[in-house]
Design a protein around this nucleic acid. Sequence first.
DNA 1: TCATTATAAATGTATAGACAAAATAGATCG
DNA 2: CGATCTATTTTGTCTATACATTTATAATGA
Lengths: 220, 220
Amino acid sequence: MAGHLAPGDRLPTEAELMQTYGCARMTVNKALSALSVAGLVDRRKRAGTFVARPKLHSMVLDVPDIAAQVRERGQDYAYRPLVRSVRPAGVEAEETLLAGEGLLLQIDGLHHADGVAFGVEFRLISAAAVPQIVDADLDTVSPGSWLLSHVPWTEAETRISAVAATSNEARRLGVAAGEPCLCVERRTWRGSERVTYVRQLFLGHAYDLVARFGPGTSTR
Amino acid sequence: MAGHLAPGDRLPTEAELMQTYGCARMTVNKALSALSVAGLVDRRKRAGTFVARPKLHSMVLDVPDIAAQVRERGQDYAYRPLVRSVRPAGVEAEETLLAGEGLLLQIDGLHHADGVAFGVEFRLISAAAVPQIVDADLDTVSPGSWLLSHVPWTEAETRISAVAATSNEARRLGVAAGEPCLCVERRTWRGSERVTYVRQLFLGHAYDLVARFGPGTSTR
DNA sequence: TCATTATAAATGTATAGACAAAATAGATCG
DNA sequence: CGATCTATTTTGTCTATACATTTATAATGA
């Protein structure tokens, strides 16, 4: 971290470090292994341990709770449901996003900050994976928060892009069509079962995401 | 992962797992510690090990090499420099982005796919932190790639947002002003020294980012 | 009843020793 | 000269043991 070793440089062997720091090899090994999973060094048997070339290939993206983030700025957060419908899967092309398993719950809603809408959300939930959702009260709490606290999930994929608001979306957000928006699409699984698909559209000037890489990031 | 244990459930103690799987406690401990740093379980002394409630608070964001990503789609990638200037820091307000240390190198450039520009990049590099950059050949290779392979860095922060292309940016990208673009701003440090600031603007329909959370993500 | 103290249960971390696995470097042979 | 085999170095992983640290729970006392 101090920069004494450049990427590609070889570190002392475990045996040498063991001597240097006067501790057992297991201890050195655990430390180096930790550096390895943190991506700071590469280790190859027989060859040794090398400073990894920094790769920007992965960073830790903070996906903040929307409500908490808004409140942190001193604003008032509110979620307002727009549409809620239960229907069998496979009716529309969109359902390929969640794909064919029993009943499908569609929930649209708006995210407000200080009473002004800054994000619109389209969500599909598989009733097969989340049976409790049908009777849940989703008028005040956002389905995102509800799912987070009620449904264990094991895998998620988020796609981030920039799009122009369609006329429909723009109307809901109270802006002109074509307004640049940050589009967050997220698919969530529990095991191999799909749980939910959500597409969130945030006004470009009202929302951003932050990702970090560095000490303290990977080690939490 | 199989869902047999719900969030909040308590796992067997290390001693019990040791019996169950017939191995040493150190082995059990290493396994549980790994699950802990992966964020799948929480461990409290005296209390035990518990299935963590899934938090969407952090995901792993793939920041792909732009060139590689374009080529993966079967397209031809090219970087073309636009502006390159060396000047003392502190001249413009922008320099607060990298802040006052000696000479500052500004490099603007375009990212092309199959000859068509899809991204424009504005970059500041601290010559104090990267003295070699002044003499580097940056006509064919993008400064991003050059820096990656020549400068070890320890920390980076990326901000992602959606913005409308300014008339200047739109001209360079060959689109209409106001076109929605994905804006990626990244600050990079080595220790406490700032290395570079970059602001990249990608055409919304030509670029997106993907973040994942799940088995195999944190463990690489 | 409440605050304080003591006990014990669980994780956290270190050690020394052993063997496995991989891959480089060298030796051998055609 | 090249291919193949061998030896050795280095990391990967497990084991058994020991002691430290934290903290939930039980015991104690005013």
